[in-house]
Design a protein around this nucleic acid. Structure first.
Length: 384
DNA sequence: AATTCGTGGTT
DNA sequence: TAACCAAGAAT
């Protein structure tokens, strides 16, 4: 362990030279640090910055956030993923108003008790916002310590995490928790990267056990990866009397409380057109037919790789002048018929948002009744 | 302990 | 391109 004893000053020097200029590093006000840490979970910082600035402009304080509608908070989160983070952040803000007089607590245990705040985030806020001697062990820290200190347990499993966390605490220079925590993470993100770490430029090279043993490629030890299931899904954009049918998803599960176009899995032996008509009937009670196929959108998420077949639907045997019908919802908590321009107000999953962006013009045209059978085609973009 | 929960960038 | 992965938390 002695070879690790004094790499921390070198790490702090490196950070002083390579620290990125990020918006929440301007004042380190606790609310901003908290928001940034929630946004940063499982998300790369460069992608967070834009969302952060927009979020802070709209919800500049705990009080402003606490008094907001969830719909608006989810809209601000649209595209970031893991939407329970946004719902928990709002719930936590309301609890801070009720229980902490509107000021984010500084105490680790009080932070840790807020919804959406785990060990990492509580430590990060305590250290980065308040300068308390706590560690924030994220995936960067796990990787850096696995290499520098040669941790041979699978680093994402409890034993590996425990070793890394213990080391991180031992190495923490008292009074410098903010710089130390940010430095470990920044170092992992910029230099000691997962794939191609820049060992030749590494200021810790002489202290790195993995490098000395020539096993950098074997650290950290990874767990078995899980296979990704391909999934075919059909979704329908139902247009009637100038409006588009959307529904608000249930309050639990994937994309909770976000809006969507109804649809679902394409079963074996089904065409996308058959599936979307069936799903629409199951979820809304509406009898529909496919007018055109709008797009095939591919998007992946952690355990699935989805191919989304998007169809434009019309009500069957209902004249365009008939009033907007009421659905019988089975897979949603609420629904509405939106004017095309209103779709931008609601938070949609990324795949559905892509659909709206690609076909917004076409949908506007169709909704206003001005389109014949040959609607404008999207630019077909095929590689190779 | 193992799953679930998104999305986009990188290699 | 397919696989991997990111300033994790909740269940």
């Amino acid at each position: 362990m002695s070879e690790n004893a004094d790499f921390v000053p070198l790490l702090l020097d490196w950070f002083a030279q390579n620290r990125r200029d990020l918006p929440w590093r301007r004042t380190y006000d606790p609310y901003g640090v908290w928001v940034s840490e929630i946004m940063a979970q499982q998300t790369q910082l460069d992608r967070v910055a834009v969302y952060f600035e927009r979020f802070m402009a709209r919800f500049p304080s705990v009080a402003a956030l606490a008094s907001a509608d969830e719909t608006e908070v989810l809209k601000a989160w649209e595209g970031l993923g893991y939407y329970s983070r946004a719902r928990n952040l709002l719930a936590a803000a309301r609890r801070v108003m009720a229980e902490h007089d509107g000021r984010l607590p500084a105490d680790f245990a009080a932070l840790r008790a807020l919804p959406g705040v785990g060990d990492y985030t509580a430590g990060a806020v305590a250290a980065i916002a308040h300068g308390q001697d706590h560690v924030a062990v994220d995936a960067n820290v796990l990787r850096v310590l696995a290499r520098v200190c040669d941790i041979d347990a699978p680093i994402k499993e409890p034993a590996g995490k425990a070793q890394a966390t213990s080391l991180a605490r031992e190495l923490l220079p008292p009074g410098r928790a903010r710089d130390y925590g940010e430095a470990l993470m920044e170092f992992g993100a910029l230099l000691c990267r997962p794939r191609n770490p820049d060992c030749p430029a590494c200021p810790l090279a002489e202290h790195c056990a993995a490098r000395r043993l020539n096993i950098v490629a074997d650290r950290p030890v990874l767990s078995k990866s899980k296979d990704i299931t391909p999934l075919n899904v059909a979704t329908g954009v139902l247009v009637h009397a100038g409006r588009i049918f959307i529904q608000k998803r249930l309050p639990k599960g994937a994309w909770a409380n976000l809006w969507e176009f109804p649809g679902g899995r394409i079963e074996a032996g089904e065409t996308p057109e058959q599936a979307v008509v069936r799903e629409f009937a199951e979820e809304t009670g509406f009898a529909t037919r496919v007018e055109t196929k709008l797009a095939v959108i591919r998007h992946g998420y952690t355990t699935y790789r989805v191919t989304l077949h998007c169809c434009l639907l019309r009500l069957t045997d209902v004249p365009e002048t008939a009033p907007l019908p009421e659905p019988t919802l089975t897979a949603a908590q609420e629904s509405l018929w939106a004017a095309p321009d209103e779709l931008s107000r609601y938070a949609f999953p990324a795949g559905h948002r892509k659909l709206i962006e690609q076909f917004g013009e076409s949908l506007r045209g169709r909704a206003s009744g001005g389109w014949g059978p040959e609607a404008p085609r999207p630019p077909t973009r095929r590689k190779g």
